[in-house]
Amino acid sequence: MIDKVQVLSVTPPSNLDAYIRIANLWPMLSIKEEKSLAKRLRYNGDLDAAKTLILSHLRFVIHISRSYSGYGLLQADLIQEGNLGLMKAVRRFNPEIGVRLVSFAVHWIKSEIHEYVLRNWRIVKVATTKSQRKLFFNLRKTKKRLGWFNEEEISIVAKELGVSSKDVREMESRMSVQDVVFNPLPEDDHTDGRNYHSVQYLQDKTSNFAHGVEEENWDEHATNKLSNALLGLDKRSRDIIHARWLDKDKKNTLQNIASNYGISAERVRQLEKNAMKKLKIAIES
């Protein structure tokens, strides 16, 4: 429903300053106005009401996004992600609960920005668990000076954030490491980048090419043996095996097969059992 709102109107343009000025021109809503608009959206699907709710809260997204400016990401991108969170909040907002939309939306706005920062701040993920995410977004705020934490500071931070000292050390280390290019060119390279890939000089010791070829040959051999063994069965037995075991769409029941051949289900079971014995002997021979 909210997805149909003109997203362009809440997407920061190339001129961020102009966007911020325009966003701040939208008047803030009174409690009565906000509740009326939210009811129109919730009960009538009024997209104009949704748009007004969103546009009147863009200034809050801008304010929240500024607290994430220390991660080296574009402010416009942070605002755009926060706007997505605001739109999700508007869609889920219940005016009957008795809280203001801005209080409800803060969680959604921060959640979208958090996900964006974690996806883009490093190529390799720096935070995957709940405690790591908590550390990631609080470590910068807690740090009072440049440089690494000493033992006392680590203990204080760990206590304040409710994590272990080991977690603090590990996250500080992760945040201090910069991404590097996997295939850097040597400084004295004279090939203009041609025919040079550092990955070519790395050994994959976990790979066993011979084992892979052997498995492929064995699979082909087993398939051929099974095909030849099936040809040795009579047509009815072969059809039963196909219907019971080789049909990719579904496995037919004994009763269905019995109905097709006009015999009992028990007789089908006997034919299947005999056919399987013959296949086993043919394959193992």
Results as ranks from 00 to 15, higher is better:
A158G: 03
A158E: 09
A158S: 10
A158H: 09
K159R: 13
E160K: 14
E160G: 01
E160S: 12
E160M: 03
E160Y: 06
E160R: 12
E160N: 08
L161E: 05
L161Q: 08
L161N: 10
L161M: 05
G162M: 03
G162P: 05
V163Y: 04
V163L: 04
S165I: 06
S165R: 15
S165F: 04
S165N: 15
K166D: 15
K166Q: 15
D167N: 11
D167R: 01
D167W: 05
D167T: 08
V168N: 01
V168S: 01
R169W: 07
R169T: 05
E170I: 14
E170Q: 13
E170R: 15
E170S: 10
E170P: 04
M171E: 03
M171Y: 04
M171K: 04
E172M: 10
E172V: 08
E172G: 09
E172W: 03
R174I: 02
M175Q: 08
M175V: 02
M175K: 10
M175E: 00
M175D: 09
S176T: 02
S176K: 09
S176W: 09
S176I: 07
V177H: 08
V177T: 12
V177Y: 03
V177A: 10
V177N: 06
V177F: 05
Q178W: 11
Q178C: 06
Q178Y: 11
Q178F: 12
D179C: 03
D179G: 04
D179K: 08
V180S: 11
V180R: 12
V180G: 00
V180C: 06
V181A: 12
V181I: 11
V181G: 03
V181R: 12
V181N: 08
V181E: 14
F182K: 10
F182E: 10
F182I: 12
N183C: 08
N183D: 13
N183A: 12
N183G: 00
P184N: 02
P184S: 02
P184W: 05
L185D: 02
L185T: 11
L185G: 00
L185P: 07
P186V: 07
P186F: 06
P186I: 03
P186N: 01
E187T: 12
E187H: 13
E187P: 10
E187C: 09
D188P: 00
D189T: 01
H190N: 13
H190A: 13
H190T: 15
T191D: 00
T191R: 12
T191G: 07
T191P: 00
D192V: 11
D192R: 12
D192K: 14
D192I: 08
D192Y: 10
G193T: 07
R194F: 14
R194A: 13
R194M: 12
R194I: 11
R194W: 13
R194P: 01
N195V: 11
Y196K: 04
H197K: 07
H197C: 01
S198W: 01
V199Y: 02
V199Q: 02
V199F: 01
V199P: 02
Q200D: 04
Q200E: 05
